[in-house]
Amino acid sequence: MALSVNTNVGAMAALQSLTATNRSLETTQSRITTGLNVASTKDDSAKFTVAQTLRGDLGKLSAVTSSLNNAKSVTDTAIAGAEQVSDLINQMKAKALEASDAGLDQDSRDAIAKDLTALKEQVNTIIDGSDFNGTNILKNDPADATNDQIVSALQSIASGSSALTVSNQGYTSLSETALGDATNTGTLTWVKTGGNDIDLSDSSGGGGDTGAQKATDFGAALDTFFSKVQDSLSTLGAASRKIEGQLSFNSKLTDVVTSGIGNLVDADLAKESAKLQALQVQQQLGVQALSIANQAPQTILSLFR
C-alpha cells in the first residue's frame, strides 16, 4: 500500500470502528439509565406501538378500579347503616312485645312508647346518615322516585360492557310505612295525630284500640319492616361481594398487562451491564488504534532525512 499524507486509510478504519463502538455504548448506557430496551419508536416501532396501547389499557383499568372502589365504599356504608337499622328494629320488636301485654299498666306502656320513639328517631338518623361522598342508597324520596340515588360503576374496559349498579333500597319509605313519618303523621294508630311520637295509650271512645292492641299492631309492622331490611341486607351483601370480585379481577389483569409491557420493552440489566464492560474496553482499544493509525504519516518523514 502506497504511503500518503493525504489519505490515511488505517485512521479512517479506526475512526469508523470507534464511532460504531461509541454509538453502541451510548445505546447501552441509555438502556441502563432508563431500564428500557425500547424507550422510543426509534428503537423498535412494532414493540413500542404495542406497549403504548397496553399502557392506555392500564390507564383505563385504573379508572375502572377507582370507580369500583367508590361503589364499594357507598355499598359498604349502606350495609353498615342497614345492619344498624336491623339491630334497632330488633330492640323495637322486643319493646313492642313487652308493651302488648294487656296486664301492663299505662304508665309502663307510656315509658316504653318513649323508648320506641327514641329508637324510631335513631333509625331515621341512621338512614339519613348512611352517606358516602354525597351518595346515599338507603334514603329515598317517597314523593318522587326520580330523586332516589343509586350506585353505578364501571366494571370492565371491554367495549360495550355494562355498568355495575346497586339500586336504592328505599329505607325512608319502609320506615314511614312501619314507624310513621319522621316529622308528622296521623295515619297510623300507634302514632299521635299531629306529631311523630309513638302512642300506646288506650283510644278514647267505645271501640277504640287499646294500648296493648296498638303495641301488637306496631309489632306486626316492625316484623314486616325487619323482613324487608333482611332482604335488603342480602341484596347489598351480594352487591358488595360482586364489587370485591371485580376489583380482584382488575387487580390481576393490571398485573398481567404490566408484566406484558415489561416483557416487550424492559431491558435485561444484567446483560446490558456485561455489554457495557465490553464496550468500554472496545472504546479504549479503538482510541489506541486510532492513535497508532494517526502516527503512520510520521514514518514518511524518515524518507526525507
Rank of each mutant, 00 (worst) to 15 (best):
D110L: 06
D199C: 05
E244G: 04
A94Q: 08
D181T: 02
D231V: 12
G59M: 13
M12S: 07
G206Y: 12
T77M: 14
S159C: 05
A63V: 05
R305D: 02
A239E: 01
A71K: 07
S227F: 11
S251Q: 11
S152H: 07
L301M: 07
V191L: 04
G160Q: 10
S167E: 02
L138I: 00
L269Q: 00
G211A: 11
L236H: 01
L301V: 02
Q246A: 09
Q29F: 15
F225G: 00
K60H: 10
A182E: 05
S173L: 10
D105R: 06
L188G: 00
T28I: 15
M92F: 06
P297F: 12
G160A: 08
A178I: 03
L303D: 01
K214N: 13
M12I: 05
G245H: 14
G286D: 03
A289T: 00
G103Q: 10
N294Y: 04
V191D: 03
A11E: 03
A96Q: 00
S30I: 12
F249A: 12
G262L: 10
G180T: 02
L3W: 13
T77G: 04
N168C: 08
N70S: 10
K95T: 01
A289Y: 05
Q284W: 04
Q106H: 06
F304I: 07
L138F: 03
A145G: 02
I126M: 09
D43P: 01
L164I: 01
I198F: 13
K192T: 04
T216H: 14
F249V: 05
V85Q: 02
V265Y: 07
S86Q: 12
L301H: 02
D181S: 04
T177L: 13
A71C: 08
G195W: 14
G134K: 09
A221Q: 13
L188N: 00
V64H: 07
I300T: 00
A293C: 04
A182Q: 09
E98I: 02
S66F: 13
A102K: 05
L269R: 01
L303G: 00
Q284G: 01
A238S: 13
T235I: 11
N133E: 10
I150S: 08
S45R: 15
T7L: 15
V74Q: 06
A2T: 05
L253E: 07
Q155N: 03
L233P: 00
A63Y: 08
R31Y: 12
S62P: 05
G237I: 00
